[in-house]
Structure formats: structure tokens, C-alpha cells
Design a protein around this nucleic acid. Sequence first.
DNA 1: CTAAAAAACTAATAAGTGTTAGTTTTGAAA
DNA 2: TTTCAAAACTAACACTTATTAGTTTTTTAG
Lengths: 232, 232
Amino acid sequence: MAKIIPGKNSTKKDVITRKASALFRKKGFTATSMRDIAEVIGVEAPSLYNHIESKYEILKDICFRIARLFTSHLREVELSNESFLSKIERIIRFHISMMIEEFEVVYISDHEWKHLPESFLTDFKNQRRNYRSRLAALLQKGIDNNEINPINPYVAVLTILSAIGGIESWHRSGKKIDSESLEENMVHILIEGLKSQPLTMMHTRRENSLTSGNVIKSKIIKLPVGKTGSKK
Amino acid sequence: MAKIIPGKNSTKKDVITRKASALFRKKGFTATSMRDIAEVIGVEAPSLYNHIESKYEILKDICFRIARLFTSHLREVELSNESFLSKIERIIRFHISMMIEEFEVVYISDHEWKHLPESFLTDFKNQRRNYRSRLAALLQKGIDNNEINPINPYVAVLTILSAIGGIESWHRSGKKIDSESLEENMVHILIEGLKSQPLTMMHTRRENSLTSGNVIKSKIIKLPVGKTGSKK
DNA sequence: CTAAAAAACTAATAAGTGTTAGTTTTGAAA
DNA sequence: TTTCAAAACTAACACTTATTAGTTTTTTAG
């Protein structure tokens, strides 16, 4: 009869959540059974119910804890006194650090939230939408202030957040680079992609619409796509 | 007794694959049952087995078809005669187009491949690794050729591919922007983030290590992270 | 119209799901 | 050492899972 032995400053529920996180990340929430979780802990499945209410509760706890963490960091940055570009950089770095250090839970909150029960789903999606709106608002202010290129802030948010989410594959495939370089390189790409270029730097791609808040819709190279693979 | 009615140029298996794709994307592969698939088609679950071999076969077909598509496009670009930066841009645009036009299957091949049966898993992961290596090699050549900033190509690949994967959320939340603007804005951010800046543009962030192939590991703002939230 | 093939159906199987009930074991306080 | 609650256990339930077998219906070909 094995026992759940919690470390310092952590309840038995924490142990379950941590072990479950690793499985949810690796196999997905639905493909992970309570028996799977119990096994890695070294206990029988029904024993888990002495500490948790349901499988969904584990997922719910993870998702909302992470959401709370990001939201409160965002509030802090919003209130700080610094350039908008620097606010954005701080947020990017926070996301990267979280993705590096709290990989599994952040990944779950990013990819497994869709399995939340309906009651929590709506709440979570609202929080997510709200977070992205506020991030977009910061970007818009940076654009108005000529710190950031007049790109569409919605697209910028989407690009930033999902780029960072890709750190998952860094964890999965052998960490071919140290975490500091990873952070610096990714920050570099994203910030350079956002930053407004000095006026002397104007180049062909921006011959018009500098004031619109959207980059120009230039000609698009349409490529044959899909299984019916026709050339249009 | 309902029937599967295939459109022109598509078998009944294609119908199943298409309907299944929508479900796999929305609910995930594991959370989608054969009965779910059968229901949206308007047929009983066992009837599906007149056209497919197993549930896994549907997933396998999707993943490998998409992998083949990207690989053959990559080969084409590799052989083309143009600058490395332009090669990269073409690849980025292809990924974006695919993500816009073949959203569901590309998403599945990106996120549900882990549920492939072991025999196919290894093959798929190899193809994926190979694709990313070749993309990184193109970036490296662009760096050697001073078209691209001396960033770590591995990080660049990771950033590019996952940024584009984020187009998922564009589909999910109401397409708040038209697809052409989406493409142009995202291409802009990514290409500007990669492109080497003319020498007159040097700025503080690049005061050294221009030749190393990696950007500098500068001081990192460490943020308190995680539930034990300690300041280091 | 008839015969054969294709594709639907119903019924059932064996395995796996989250979870509950009831019981026994464990570890700490008295 | 006794007492008592916390936490483990076993057994079981009610469903759901992918899939097979066997049968009936539908479509196609001659």
C-alpha cells in the first residue's frame, strides 16, 4: 500500500496535480486516465478521490491558476512607468520564462482548456479574450506613440503568443540550446519584428498606408494548396 | 438508412476524413468517437468500416498527407534560384496559406500527431525533424550571406512555425481581420524580425558577437515565476 | 428484371472510462 | 496502547470505447 508523500510546502493535492500535469501534457487530457495518474503516483485510482473532486477539477485548477498568474503580471506591467515597447518586451519575457520554467502547466492551459466543463469554459475563454485585448491595446498605444510599427495589433498578439507557445518543441526535442539563448533569440526576433524602424530606413514594403494602423495588403503569392491541388 | 454521398472527385473515404477532421480539430482526436463521426455524416458507426480500416487510419492519412505537402514544397524552394531571405518568405507564406485554407487538417497534423500509433509515430517525427533541419539550414545560409541576422536558426524555425500555427485562434475567434491582412502583417513581423539591418542601423542590442551565429546572451530580467513564486 | 456487389444496418464483444460504496490499513495524538 | 481520522484498499457500477459478425437493404450491371 503505497502512499502519496508530499514534499515541503505542498499538499497531496499538489502532488496529484503535478504528476497529472506531466501526463496531460504528454498524452493529452482525454487520453490520460485516472488509472494512469494513479500509477505514476504509485496508488490505486480510487484513492485519488480522497484528495480531489474529479478529473476535471485538476484541469480547472491548472488552467485558472495560470490564467491568474498572467493576468496579474499584465496588470503590473500596465501600471508601470516605461515605454510601451518595453512593456511589450517585459510581457514577452514573462511568457518565455513561464514557458521555460512552468512548461507543463502553461502548455496545458494553452492547449487543453477546451476540455474544461462548460461552466468553466465560458469563464476561461472570457479571461483569455480579455487578456489578448489588453495586450493588443498596449501594442496600439505603442503604435500611436511611434515606438511600434503600424501593424495590426490583433495579428501581433496572435503572433507573439503562439511563437512563444512553440517553446514546447524545445522541451520536447532535447533542448538543443540553453534557455538563456533561447529567450534572447526569440525576444530579438519578436521585438525587431514589432519595432518601428527609423525614418531613414523606409523600404519598399512600406511605400504607403503608414498611418492606417494596418500594413498594406500587397499582392499575395497564391500557392496551390490542398489535395485537390488546383492552380488558381 | 442514410447514405454517404461523396461530391465530385472525392471518395466516400474522403467524406469521412473531412468530417472527422472538423471533429478532431474541435474536440481533439481522443475525445472524438467513431459514433461522433458517424453522427455528423448521418450513418451508424460500424458503417464507417466499409470505407476505412480504423480510427487511427484517418489520423495517419491526414498527418502524412500534410507532411508530404510541406516537404515537397520545401524541396521546390530549395532548388529555386532566389535569395535565401526570399526562400524563407516563400516558405512562410506557404505555411500561412495552408493554415488559412486547409486549417483543420494542418492543425491536426500539428497537434494531434502524438496520437499516431507507434509504428507511424517514429516515421512522422523523423519527417518533422528533417523538415525543420532543412529550414534551419536555409536560415543558416541566409545568415552566412548577410541577408539574415545572426540569430540561432533553430530558435528562428521554432518561432516561425509556431507563430504561424497560431492562426488557429484566428479561425476560432471570429476572423476579426481579413485573410490577406493577416498574411501580410504576420509576414511583416516575422521577416522584419529575421532580416539583417543595414550597418548604419546598428543599435545597442547588437553591440557585440555579430559573427557568432548566435545573438548575445545579455542580462536576463528574471521574473518571479510559478506557484512557489520566489524572487531569485 | 435479375444477380451481384456495395454499403448500410443491428447486435454484441471485450476492454476501458470516471467514479462510488464499503472496508481495511496507516500514522499521529491522547 | 488505545483511539480516531486520514487515506489507502477492493469490488463494483453504469457507461463509453473501437471494432467484429452477421444480416438486410440499396445500388449498380448485365
